[in-house]
């Protein structure tokens, strides 16, 4: 019972963090939200994996976050450029997050019947992250945002995949992919922001 309650708390945390990543534009808060997102993912992965194995997800997620954070920290003056696409703005994004929540609520029970025994909170958490990650990817084009979105989508996928696959090799490779994506993100962010810094 406690595990189920904990799982639903994790789902709420994931909703808050993934929505926060879409709505917020302060990089420090974004990194905090991303770190919190991995905490939620860890709780849901631990529903099917041993805690030690699920903790790998948490640790590598935080390492990826730290890699991005350290890179962004080196460019203290950077500001996000306004998006070129319409519609944009916080109200639009909030509305779209609402759509993702509705979609997740509608799809989760159906997906749960396809994957028996996985648990509704795990499916709901996974779909929420994948949906909000795709939304993030579709509405923002800055490199940092693209990396946040990909990490969010991967976290959502991993939560659901943990319910059907418990191979150590898969867990290890997914951890390396998360870390690698964080490092690639740091590399791309560095490449994007460096010339502006030099010019300034």
């Amino acid at each position: 019972m406690l595990a189920v309650i904990l799982a639903w708390i994790a789902v709420i945390l994931l909703l808050a963090t993934s929505a926060g990543l879409i709505l917020n534009s302060d990089w420090r808060l974004d990194l905090g939200l991303l770190a919190a997102q991995y905490l939620g993912a860890f709780v849901l992965a631990a529903q099917h994996w041993p805690v030690g194995m699920a903790a790998v997800k948490l640790v590598t997620g935080w390492m990826a976050t730290a890699a991005i954070g350290m890179t962004l920290n080196a460019f203290t003056s950077h500001e996000e450029r306004p998006e070129q696409f319409w519609p944009r703005g916080r109200a639009f994004r909030l509305f779209m997050v609402g759509m993702v929540v509705v979609l997740a609520a509608a799809a989760a029970p159906r997906v749960e019947t396809t994957i028996p025994g996985i648990g509704l909170p795990v499916v709901a958490g996974g779909i929420l992250l994948i949906g909000n990650g795709l939304l993030h990817l579709g509405t923002r084009s800055e490199v940092t945002r693209v990396i946040y979105a990909l990490l969010t989508i991967l976290a959502g996928f991993e939560i659901i995949y943990a319910g059907v696959e418990s191979s150590i090799l898969v867990a290890a490779l997914l951890a390396v992919i998360n870390l690698g994506l964080g490092l690639v993100g740091a590399y791309l962010i560095n490449a994007e922001l460096s010339p502006e810094e030099e010019a300034a």
Partner: peptide
């Protein structure tokens, strides 16, 4: 992911 640094030198946007 390994291909990204191959495609993009660190001094290029």
């Amino acid at each position: 992911m390994t291909a990204v640094p191959l495609l993009l030198p660190s001094n290029q946007k």
